[in-house]
């Protein structure tokens, strides 16, 4: 069974690796549009942030690189893996496919906003007990998605499996992920 500490270590390691060159390209400014900055007034985990972003920045870019909330992960950056899942007004979205400018007044929940090391969210607790992760990179997105799947009314194993199909785990922990969610759902 991975400990809570192991989960944290995995996350830190991968967070470090993830801040690579790719994002620098997003930030580069085309000479044709050197000036435009978009004013944002977003609320993340209950805290309001006034900031500016490039017109091309995704919500994921802003959460990770401006607000430094690196629990939300960049996986495929194409909406296919679910690692970037956050809640906007309680609804799950792929934050890599959301232009920050479009969500400039959004109320956002990330993994940092759902529990603490001392008071885990029930899904975080269940994921640990069910060994529902190995490297942990997809786990924040899995848990945010699972919160939404339960809120959307999934009440069977099949509905959980279908509801979680937008979250991929390359370590292959899907069976235990479903078991953890099912336990919290009371199944």
């Amino acid at each position: 069974m991975p400990s809570r500490l192991a989960l944290t270590c995995h996350n830190r390691s991968l967070t470090f690796q993830c801040c690579g060159d790719e994002h620098q390209m997003t930030q580069s400014q085309d000479a044709k549009f050197p000036k435009q900055r978009i004013a944002l007034s977003i609320t993340v985990n209950g805290t309001r942030h006034e900031l500016e972003a490039a017109p091309t920045a995704t919500l994921l870019d802003v959460i990770r690189d401006e607000l430094k909330l690196t629990g939300t992960k960049k996986g495929c950056d194409m909406g296919g893996c679910g690692a970037c899942t956050v809640l906007v007004a309680g609804r799950r979205i792929a934050s890599c496919l959301a232009l920050a400018a479009s969500f400039g007044d959004a109320d956002i929940t990330t993994i940092e906003g759902i529990g603490t090391a001392d008071r885990l969210h029930p899904l975080q607790d269940a994921f640990i007990r069910h060994d529902a992760l190995q490297c942990g990179y997809c786990t924040p997105g899995q848990i945010l998605s699972a919160i939404a799947v339960l809120a959307e009314g999934a009440r069977s194993i099949e509905e959980i499996r279908e509801g979680m199909s937008g979250n991929l785990c390359r370590c292959g922990a899907h069976a235990n992920i479903v078991a953890a969610i099912a336990e919290v759902a009371g199944l």
Partner: peptide
């Protein structure tokens, strides 16, 4: 179609 995260967008 797609996934829950994409259908919400």
């Amino acid at each position: 179609s797609a996934s829950g995260q994409v259908r919400n967008l």
